[in-house]
């Protein structure tokens, strides 16, 4: 379990995270949603202590991460950054470096075996001896996720894990992340831009706007109203075959018409936005802690 308690982070005088708090149980995939610059990546870096909060703490299974050594933290938290560039080495070596927090100078048989397992798990077996500079963006993305998994962490922080991936690979990788999370009881926090992929594979959501945790909770928080507030975008949220789907609207009117004319039997849709003098009037509940 990871507990984030009132963390605030500043770049100079600009506060990019403001009093963020939440508790996440093991075995859950949590998607962090929000526009560019809303503080999503900063949140991940702060949890991992790449950035230091000027206020607040992060507890990992009751232990304050601020008091853990860097090596100890590396054995507990696996991290995949937003941007990854290839390095002149083989895929096997690129994944093996994830074992660094666990291994001594000499590479043990266990390290090699663990690395091999992760490579197979991520479907990278055929590429193991290939140089990472020869891989496509999607293949490199898998390598980077594999490296984070090789850390054998309790918490997995993935900054846009399906970036650069085609739709099939997106589904495969997210299925894998969800399965590994549940099977190993990990806490997986992913920054996501594709709301539909997030809705399909995540258990919980953190919606961020301007450094503030705007809403947290299960799928019920990913509403048209909340999306409108966080992304400044009109959308419909529909239920299709038991999965919530976010559909952007061409204009405000089309969303209203569609929402009024369709009624899902499985899930009651919220009424169309209330317009007052051309402005959207929204109602939000208190922040939820899950």
């Amino acid at each position: 379990m990871i507990s984030i308690e009132g963390i605030s982070v500043s770049y100079g005088k600009h506060e990019v995270l403001k009093d963020i708090s939440c508790h996440i149980q093991g075995g859950q995939v949590v998607s962090v949603l929000g526009m560019n610059g809303s503080g999503k990546s900063t949140l991940l870096k702060t949890i991992n202590r790449i950035l230091h909060p000027h206020r607040g703490t992060v507890h990992l299974y009751g232990q304050n991460t601020g008091r853990m050594s860097r090596e100890q933290l590396a054995r507990s938290i696996g991290y995949m950054p937003q941007k990854s560039r290839a390095v002149d080495c083989t895929v096997f070596e690129a994944v093996l470096i994830g074992r660094k927090p666990h291994m001594a100078w000499h590479v043990s048989t266990k390290d090699i075996e663990e690395t091999s397992k992760i490579i197979q798990l991520m479907g990278l077996g055929p590429y193991a001896d290939r140089n990472t500079t020869e891989l496509s963006g999607g293949e490199l993305q898998r390598v980077v996720i594999a490296r984070a998994l090789a850390q054998a962490p309790q918490v997995l922080l993935l900054d846009e894990p399906v970036n650069h991936l085609d739709i099939k690979s997106q589904l495969e990788v997210m299925t894998l992340i969800r399965d590994v999370t549940r099977r190993l009881g990990l806490v997986t926090i992913t920054v996501m831009h594709d709301l539909n992929i997030a809705l399909r594979f995540s258990d919980k959501f953190m919606m961020m706007a301007d450094g503030i945790l705007f809403a947290t909770g299960g799928r019920e928080v990913v509403t048209a109203e909340n999306i409108k507030e966080v992304y400044k975008l009109n959308v419909m949220v529909r239920e299709m075959e038991g999965i919530s789907v976010v559909i952007p609207c061409h204009d405000q009117g089309s969303c209203c018409r569609n929402e009024i004319s369709t009624t899902s039997p499985s899930r009651k849709l919220r009424p169309c936005h209330q317009f007052t003098n051309g402005k959207v009037s929204l109602q939000y509940g208190p922040k939820r802690i899950f």
Partner: peptide, 8 residues
């Protein structure tokens, strides 16, 4: 799993 270790 383990086939790659020979390559490394």
């Amino acid at each position: 799993a383990g086939l790659e270790q020979s390559g490394y």
